[in-house]
Amino acid sequence: MKPTTRGTLAAVITGVAAAIGAATPAVATGAVPVPVPLEGAENSLGMELPEIGADVPLLKPGTPNGPRYAEGRLLPDRTVPQLPVRGGLPGLSVRQPLPQLLGDGFDHAGVEVPAADLRTLSPGLDVDTPLTAPGSRSFGLPGAKLPEAGVLAPVVQAVPAAHLGLGAGL
């Protein structure tokens, strides 16, 4: 095997191992941190640029509340159940250096929007047939009634927050 092939293979294996190692904590916390590297632009421009980072949440589907029997109906309640999905709103962190008017130092202005929990329920469907349940009064035959149909509304719950601040130093 050529040395360049070995080097390429070693780089690929190292990258895969790093990706697996980085994905395990992300799955445990529910968000993947995404830093934005701006050091190269700082060096080429010769100036301080903001530090930017983000958190991208992972979606976790839940277990739907299945159909359940309702007395007096031929079809079960919640014919098409709602699917709960948990995730989060993405987070963002920005720190911008501010030069001091008097002196050579820097202060900073920062905005932090932490990742917020997000809970949703998909829309569902509730229908019933135009027949009643068989009864003893009608000799075991179903009777006629108006059909029923309803849409279970989707639900979205989140509590986003943001922090704005000024401080000394970078």
Rank of each mutant, 00 (worst) to 15 (best):
G66T: 14
P61R: 06
A70F: 11
G40A: 09
R78M: 11
A41W: 11
P81G: 10
L49T: 02
R73S: 06
A54Q: 05
R86E: 13
Y69D: 12
A41P: 00
D77L: 14
P90V: 06
A41Y: 05
L58Q: 00
G72N: 06
V85E: 03
G87R: 03
L38H: 06
P57N: 09
S93H: 08
P64V: 06
P50H: 03
V85Y: 04
T63K: 13
D55T: 10
R73H: 09
P61C: 05
L38Y: 03
V56G: 05
S93V: 02
G40H: 04
L92I: 07
E71K: 09
L38T: 05
P57R: 03
P76T: 09
A70R: 15
P97Y: 11
G40P: 01
P81T: 10
N65T: 14
T79F: 14
L58R: 02
T63Y: 06
P57S: 12
Y69G: 05
P64M: 11
L74P: 00
P37F: 02
Q96V: 13
G66V: 14
V36L: 15
L45F: 14
T79G: 00
P37G: 12
P84H: 09
G40M: 00
G91F: 00
L45H: 07
R68F: 13
L89D: 04
A70E: 15
L74V: 13
P84Q: 09
E39H: 12
P81W: 04
M47V: 15
L83H: 04
T63R: 13
V56K: 05
G72K: 07
P81F: 05
R78V: 08
R68W: 08
L58H: 02
E48F: 09
V56I: 15
I52E: 01
R73V: 00
N43I: 02
R95M: 11
L89F: 11
E42I: 04
A54L: 15
G91H: 01
P37I: 01
S44L: 15
G46I: 11
G66K: 12
E42T: 09
L89E: 06
G53E: 08
I52K: 01
P67W: 01
G62N: 07
R86G: 01
R73N: 09
S93A: 13
L49A: 05
E71V: 07
L75P: 00
Q82K: 08
Q82A: 10
P61K: 06
S44Y: 07
I52Y: 03
D77F: 13
L49P: 01
S93F: 01
G40D: 05
Q96M: 12
R86M: 08
G53Y: 02
S93K: 07
L75I: 12
V94S: 01
L75E: 01
L45T: 13
L74K: 08
A41S: 11
E51Y: 04
I52P: 03
G88D: 05
V36P: 01
P90S: 09
P84A: 10
L45A: 15
G88N: 04
P61E: 03
L59K: 11
L59H: 05
L92P: 01
G53N: 09
P97A: 15
L89Y: 10
P76S: 14
R78Y: 07
E42R: 15
D77W: 13
D55C: 00
R86L: 09
E71G: 12
P37L: 06
L59S: 14
G62H: 08
R86A: 10
I52V: 15
E71M: 11
P64S: 14
P97K: 12
P76L: 07
P84N: 08
G66F: 13
P76K: 07
